[in-house]
Each structure stands twice: as C-alpha cells, then as structure tokens.
Simulated assay, not measured.
Amino acid sequence: MPLPFLTADRAFDEAADDLALPFDDRDHWRRPYRPGPWRVGAAALVLLLASFVLFAAVIIAVAGALPGGAITFGGAVLVILCALRLLRVGVWVSAHGLRRVSFFRTGTTPWAQVAAVRTVQQPVRWLGLPRTVQGQALVLVRADRAPDDLTPLLTTHNADFLARMEAFDRAADSVEVWADEYRRV
C-alpha cells in the first residue's frame, strides 16, 4: 500500500539539473525532500506504542469493561494521529506559497510576502531540543518583518537532515528555486 505522505515526489530526484520545477500541477502542496530517518524512526516507535495500546484496548473490552476499552481505544487513535502528524512536519511548497508545518501549528507565507530564502551559518537546535550546535539553516526573510527576524525553515540538525548534509543541500536548493520562481510572478 503506497503511503504518499512518507516520501516526497520522486521527480525531484529524477529531474535534470536544468529542470528545477518538474511538476505539471504546481498548485498541489508538496514537500521537496524525503523525511529523514530520525523522523520516520520516531513515528515508527510511536506506532509501535499505539499497537500495544490497541492490544490493551481489546483485552480490556473482552474482559467486560467496555467503557474502559473505548477510552483506551480512543487513546490509541490519538497516538496514531500524533504519529501521522509527526510525519507531516516540515516545509511544503506550491504555487501559493511556502508552508511550514510544525507539530502543533501550520503557517503559510504567500510568495508575495517572501523577501528571500537563503542558507546561513548559525547556531541551530539539535533535533528540536533546547541544545544548540553550529550548523546551517535555510531561513525565510519576510517582506513584512524586520530583516533580522529570520525564520528557520530547515536545519542541518533537525530530524530530517541530521548527518545527511547532501540531502539538506538538495532540499535547500529546491526551496530556494521555488522561491526564486514564484517571487518574480
């Protein structure tokens, strides 16, 4: 069974260097990179936990405590939804703008409000934790905000690109090409 939210479009990997945006339907939101092994591994562990909770819900329901089984089943569904949301976290692009999906929030910036998208060397958070390390970040400079208010979109030390520098470079280049293409329009 194909799971399209797990992989980015393969056209990014198979496209020629001169063809930066190889899509016919540019209105469709897409992630220009594959989720990293840390993100997929964390989602797999959360789904493993969900399977145990579902098994517990069946045991509770068979034992005769239907309300407890229903509550446990609801908790398992919530854990599964959290795993799916974890897989959707990242940067998505389309002809409409740039969308940054985090675990609790989703924010969309129209291309008209994007002043620049560039890669900078700066301290970045390691796997989203409070600890910072020196790394690279793809930052969004918005036209409606101060130039020093840089929003990091991707970093070399997040769950998608930890120890995958080439993947970060390809993803950053892809997002920059989308920005260059649609900021002019």
Rank of each mutant, 00 (worst) to 15 (best):
P2C: 03
P4L: 14
P4H: 14
T7V: 15
T7Q: 11
A8Q: 10
D9V: 08
A11W: 00
D13I: 04
A15R: 12
A15C: 07
D18P: 00
L19R: 10
L21T: 10
L21E: 01
P22Y: 03
P22L: 06
P22W: 02
D24E: 11
R26V: 15
R26K: 10
W29T: 09
R30H: 07
R31M: 12
R31I: 10
P32K: 09
R34F: 04
P35Y: 02
P35L: 11
G36F: 04
G36H: 05
P37I: 12
P37T: 11
R39G: 06
V40R: 14
V40C: 03
A42T: 13
A44H: 09
L48E: 07
L49D: 07
A50V: 12
S51K: 02
L54T: 14
L54P: 00
V62K: 08
V62N: 03
G64T: 10
L66V: 15
G68D: 09
A70V: 15
A70E: 03
A70F: 14
I71P: 01
T72R: 06
T72P: 02
F73D: 00
G74C: 11
G75I: 13
V79G: 05
I80Y: 02
C82L: 15
A83M: 09
L84K: 06
L84D: 08
L84V: 15
L86C: 04
L86T: 12
R88K: 14
G90Q: 08
G90V: 14
V91T: 15
V93E: 03
V93I: 14
V93A: 12
S94T: 12
S94A: 15
H96F: 10
L98H: 05
L98N: 04
R99S: 12
R99A: 13
R100P: 00
V101Q: 15
S102D: 14
F104E: 03
R105W: 12
R105Y: 12
T106Q: 13
T108Q: 11
W111F: 08
A112H: 07
V114Q: 02
A115F: 01
A115L: 09
A115M: 01
A116S: 09
V117C: 09
V117K: 03
V120A: 08
V120Y: 01
P123S: 08
P123T: 07
R125E: 03
W126N: 09
G128K: 06
P130H: 06
V139R: 03
V141I: 12
V141M: 05
V141G: 01
V141P: 00
R142N: 01
A143L: 09
D144R: 05
D144S: 11
A146W: 01
P147D: 11
L150M: 09
L150F: 03
L150K: 08
L153P: 01
L154D: 02
L154A: 07
T155M: 06
T155L: 06
A159S: 10
A159T: 08
D160I: 14
F161V: 10
F161P: 02
A163C: 08
R164G: 02
R164Q: 13
M165H: 13
A167C: 05
A171W: 02
E176R: 15
W178M: 10
W178L: 13
W178Q: 09
E181H: 15
Y182T: 05
Y182E: 06
R183F: 04
